[in-house]
Design a protein around this nucleic acid. Sequence first.
DNA 1: TCCTCAAATGCAACCGATCTCACAATCGAT
DNA 2: ATCGATTGTGAGATCGGTTGCATTTGAGGA
Lengths: 331, 331
Amino acid sequence: MPEPRIDDVAAAAGVHRSTVSRAFSKPEAVRPETREHVLKVAAELGYSMSPLAQALRRRVSNLVPLIVPDITNPFFAELAHTTAAAARRQGYQLILCLTDGDQSLTSKYLDSVHSMYSPFGIIAPSTPVDLESLRRDAFDNRVVVIDRVNSDYSVPTVTVDSAHGIDLAFEHLSSLGHTEIAYAPGIVGTNTAYDRRKAYQRAASMRDVKPQVLGSTHTADIGSEVVDDWLDSAQRPTAVIASNDAIAFAVIAEFSTRNIRVPEDVSVVGFDGLDLGAHFNPRLTSVKQPIEAMGEISIQLGEKLMNGETAEHIMLEPTLLVRSSTGEVTS
Amino acid sequence: MPEPRIDDVAAAAGVHRSTVSRAFSKPEAVRPETREHVLKVAAELGYSMSPLAQALRRRVSNLVPLIVPDITNPFFAELAHTTAAAARRQGYQLILCLTDGDQSLTSKYLDSVHSMYSPFGIIAPSTPVDLESLRRDAFDNRVVVIDRVNSDYSVPTVTVDSAHGIDLAFEHLSSLGHTEIAYAPGIVGTNTAYDRRKAYQRAASMRDVKPQVLGSTHTADIGSEVVDDWLDSAQRPTAVIASNDAIAFAVIAEFSTRNIRVPEDVSVVGFDGLDLGAHFNPRLTSVKQPIEAMGEISIQLGEKLMNGETAEHIMLEPTLLVRSSTGEVTS
DNA sequence: TCCTCAAATGCAACCGATCTCACAATCGAT
DNA sequence: ATCGATTGTGAGATCGGTTGCATTTGAGGA
C-alpha cells in the first residue's frame, strides 16, 4: 500500500484537506473534538506529513546545515554531536556539510541548503569567513558563526573566551612552578587561533615570561616542528601550551618518540578539553571549551535570527581540566 | 528580488515551462540550440532549480542518510568523512544521523528521510540491526548496511574481513616473539565485535596460544578493567590485541597510568587504523580498515539498489599498519 | 422564534517543478 | 504531391501540502 496522503486522511475522517492540515499544524484553529478525531484517523492510517511538501508551500524547512571544515578533527566531531542533539530537540534535522578546507564549498553548501528553505545555517569555519560573499550568496544573512567575525557585527556569533582560557593554563602552570612556558600555535587563519596566540603573548608578558612560539612554518608534521624548535631553544621551556588538543596530541607523540617524557621533562596543556584527551597517554590537561553549550546556543541564535531579532554575540567561558600531562617543574 | 522560478526563465526565453525543465533534466529531449538558449537565459537570471520541488514531483531526492551511533568515535568520523565525499561526487547530499546508541532513533530517522524521498540509506550500526523493523518501517529495503547482517541476505552489506585482520595482528606479534597474546573486546553487540573475537579465539588456538580475553564486564571504564585482568593474569600476556583503536587508546592510557610501559612491558595493537593513531603515544600499531573504500562502496551499493539490482555482499581486506606500540618481546 | 457575530470548516489557488499526452513541424519515401 | 514516421514543443494534471477568503454552524441576545 502506498503511503497515505492528506486527502486519504481527510476522506477517512469525513473532513476537508484543509481541516486535516490545520489539525496538525495549527491546532488552535480547529475544534478540539474534530482535531482529536482527525489525529486518531491519521494514526490509524499510519499517516505522517510530507516535510517536502510542507517546506515547498511554507517556504521554510526544518533542515539546518552545520558547515565544518573537517569532521575528522575530534573538536568538530564533538561540536557536531552536541549541535545535532540540540537541533533535534527543536525539531530540526541537522545537515552536516564537510568542506575539507575548500572555501568555495562553503558558499556552495549555503546555496544548496538555502534552496531547501533552511531557516538558518551554522558555520564553524576553519578560515575567516568571507561574509561579503555569504551575505550576497544567499540566506539573507541568516547565518550563525561559531568563532569571531572580523568585519561584521550583524552576524551572530558564539565564541569562547580565549584570553581567559590561556590565563587558566598559565595560572595552572605557574602554580606548578613553571616559568618557561612556550606556545605551539595551530593552523593560522582562524580568529580563534589568532586570539589564542595573542592571548598567550599578553599573558606571557604580564607574567614576565619570555614568549616563545614553537614551530610556525606549518609543514605537514607539526609535531616534529614544535619539538625541533623546543630542542633548539636556548632556554628550553618546561611547559608548552598547545593551541588545541589535536596539536597537543601530535606534540606529545613527537616528544615521546624522541624519548622526552611528558610531564616529567616537559608539561603540555591542550585547548579544547576533548573527551578523547581522557584516554590519551598521558591523560591530557586541557582548557575545556563548553562545546555542549556552543551547540545549544548556536541553535538558539539561529532561531532568534529567523524571528527577525538582531544579532547577538555570545562569549562563553572555558574551564580548566587538570589531568596528567602537566606536573611540577623538576630541574 | 525573489529567486527566479522556472516560469520566469520560460517567459524570458520565450518557451514553455516544460521546455526549460527538459533543458535541465533531459538534455537529449530538446533541440541543442533551444537548450543552449534556455541555459543562457537561466544563467543570466541566476536561476537554479528547487531541489524540493523536484523531489516532490519526481518522488526521488538527493538526500542520502548515513546513520551512525556516535560521531565522536573517530572511526565513524572517518567513515562519515569518506562517505560524504563519495556521496558528493555522485551528486548526493549526505545527511548525518546520530543515534547515540538509541535503537529507536534508527527507524525514526529512516522514516524521516524516507518521507524526503531519499533514494537509499546507509546504516553503520553499533548494535545488530533489527531488519524486520527496517524493512517494514520504510524504504522498501533500500538500505545498505556497513557490518554484516545476520538473518537476511537481501540487504547489501560491506564488511571488512575481521579474521584476516586478526591474523595479520597475530602474525606480526608472533614475528616479534610474542606467545602470550590476549584480547580486549569492545562493546559487545555488533557483528564485527563478535567476528573479531571469534577470529581471535580461532587464531589463538591455531597457534597454540591460550586465549585470554581481558575485561569483559564492560562498565564505564574499559581501560582499567582490561588492565586489572592483565595484572591478575597468571601468565601475563606480553601483547594485547584490542578490538578497535578507541579501546587500544584507553588500554594504553591505563597501562601508562599504572607505570606499565608500552611497548616495552606489553605490546598493544589496535583495529581500525585511524589517522589519529599516528599521533598517539606511542604511535599505534593497528589493523587498518579500508575506510575510504567502505564509504565509496556503500554509495555504489546504494545506487545499485535503487536501480533494482540485487543485494551484494562486499568483503574488504584489511592491512597492517606497523607503528610503535608493538615491539619485540623482552622477558 | 429570529437575528447577529464569532468560531469552525470548506473551497480553490498556490508552492516549483515533472511528465504524459496531444499537436505541429520536418523529413524521407512513394 | 501525399502520407506515415519522427522529433520538438506546448498544455495541463500532478506531487502533497498551506492559506486567504467564503461559507456554514452554533451560541447568545432580543
